[in-house]
């Protein structure tokens, strides 16, 4: 997904951050902030809370840079998963589980709608950036697979809760997440 040269550059920055280099942290922030802010906004939908979350995420990255393992994930994925975990913690702390479950379908539709618009636009011109590639890859997935992985990723629901919410058997939900993620991987490789 991320270009190898960019991954190497990010890794070098994280190593410097681990050594206490604030300038390197500033550069890393510039690389990641907008993507992480957008993700947290998608999950939380409240600008003030998103800012607090991103601040927490940045502190966590600063404090735990030494434990980053490049064999497990790229720096981008590492930061994304930290952000997602922090945002989901906040959702749970706010006690919004029930409310989100009720509106999850709308949010997923909205998310899919966003994906569709961008993917349509990207068909017109060459796919040049990561965002267009992901949106385009998402469009190649069967609808139920796409909805399953989007619900799994963009809400705080567990797979059991997704099954309950959608009225699908747990095994079906698990299979959709598995197949959806595998096909997304293959789709990203092909683009």
């Amino acid at each position: 997904m991320i270009e190898p040269s960019q991954q190497a550059s990010d890794y070098a920055l994280v190593k410097r951050v681990a050594a206490g280099d604030q300038e390197a942290f500033s550069s890393l922030y510039d690389r990641l902030a907008n993507a992480l802010f957008s993700l947290a906004y998608q999950l939380l939908g409240d600008a003030a809370e998103v800012e607090d979350t991103l601040q927490e995420v940045c502190l966590q990255i600063w404090r735990s840079a030494a434990t980053y393992n490049a064999k497990r994930s790229s720096v981008f994925s590492w930061a994304v998963m930290i952000t997602r975990a922090r945002a989901i913690d906040r959702l749970r702390a706010r006690g919004r589980r029930q409310r989100l479950a009720e509106t999850a379908a709308d949010e997923v539709e909205k998310s899919v709608g966003v994906s569709s618009r961008w993917a349509d636009a990207s068909h017109v011109s060459a796919i040049k950036d990561d965002a267009a590639r992901v949106r385009s890859a998402l469009q190649t997935l069967p609808g139920d697979h796409r909805r399953a992985i989007e619900m799994a990723f963009f809400s705080e629901m567990t797979h059991a809760e997704i099954a309950q919410h959608t009225g699908s058997p747990l095994g079906t939900v698990k299979a959709r997440i598995r197949r959806g993620l595998l096909r997304l991987r293959d789709g990203l490789d092909d683009l």
Binding site: A35, I149, R185
Partner: peptide, 13 residues
Amino acid sequence: LRESGAALAHAVE
């Protein structure tokens, strides 16, 4: 799979 999952972050507005 983690890279693919994290790539979903690019799909948001």
